Computed example of a mutant assay.
Amino acid sequence: MRSTVADVMTTGVASVTENTGYKEIVQALLEQGVSALPVVDADGGILGVVSEEDLLHKEEFKDTDHDSNYWPPLRARLRSRLTGAGVLVERADEKAVATTAGQLMTHPAITTRPDAAVVEAARLMERRGVKRLPVVDAAGALVGMISRRDLLRVFLQNDDTIAAAVQEEIDHLAATVQGTDIAAAVKDGTVALTGSVHHRSTGHTLARLVNRIEGVVSVDNRMTWHVDDLLMPYAGL
């Protein structure tokens, strides 16, 4: 069974409101030992996320008065962020003069649900270019946060648990496909598949299914086959 966001997310998450001031945000980040905080409304609904990156713009642009020879390059003044509508370019220098969470936050917040699969959350982070996701319930209220570090917990599955899941896949294959004689060994999350199958495509499919098992780091496919149907020429050619 695949883990869900609820299995690995952090609960009891500290948050700030739109009116929370800059120094108060910094203090909360340091006290909580986190790199970002969700910004919520009076009903606990998620409005955005304020991060260390948002706060550090103020330091980067501090020395930009008329008497200074320094002015950050354009790539530093503009920040690109993926959104559902495409690429959003934000003015980092504008955030440098912001004083509240509402002015500093990245919004709208990209969120996930507690019942979402961990792999779905990982893909969402990668696709949207974010390091963490607020987790909201059906009503849109904040119930937790999930970070890239939290996602790594799925790889802490012990080898015995992984081996049992792999054997289920092998048993199912053997019961449905003739000529299947496969064994598996698991060490530190790496699965070595040995034995033989009639068609090469059968072994290819099994290796792909095993690689999707939670906690599997890699698959060492040593299976042999009798018919290489993956390289058979098209009929009529």
Rank of each mutant, 00 (worst) to 15 (best):
E94Y: 14
T4C: 10
S35D: 11
T4S: 10
H204F: 09
E214R: 02
M232V: 15
D63V: 07
M105L: 02
V217N: 06
G33T: 10
G12L: 05
V216D: 01
Q167A: 11
R222T: 05
T190E: 14
T17M: 04
D181W: 12
R153D: 13
A117H: 10
I162S: 02
R222S: 05
G45R: 14
D137G: 05
E168T: 12
V216E: 02
A109R: 04
N69T: 14
D43N: 13
L230W: 01
R91K: 12
H66M: 00
A98H: 11
V191I: 13
G86M: 09
R2A: 02
K23V: 14
P114H: 09
D181V: 14
R222W: 00
R132V: 06
E90D: 15
G144V: 05
I146G: 09
V166F: 07
A163R: 14
G195K: 06
R2I: 02
E126C: 07
D63Q: 08
A165T: 12
V135C: 11
T112E: 09
T11D: 06
L37F: 07
I46H: 00
V135K: 13
G44L: 01
R132F: 03
K62G: 00
A183C: 00
V34E: 00
A184T: 11
R2D: 10
S218T: 10
P134Q: 10
S15D: 08
A117T: 01
R91V: 05
V210A: 04
D63Y: 13
N19M: 15
A14E: 14
K23D: 15
V13H: 06
T64Y: 01
A85D: 15
E24M: 01
T111C: 12
V16R: 02
Y70W: 15
A207Q: 06
L237N: 01
Q32T: 11
T4W: 05
V49Q: 04
T83A: 05
A85Q: 13
V154N: 02
G102V: 13
V136H: 06
Y234E: 13
G33S: 07
K187P: 00
R222E: 09
L56E: 12
L231D: 07
E59W: 05
D67I: 00
Y22W: 11
A138K: 14
D63I: 03
L193I: 10
D220C: 01
M232F: 01
V87P: 02
L206C: 08
A235T: 12
L78D: 08
A235W: 04
V119T: 13
A28W: 00
P233C: 03
V40K: 02
L30D: 09
T106Y: 08
V89D: 09
A109H: 07
E18R: 13
E90N: 07
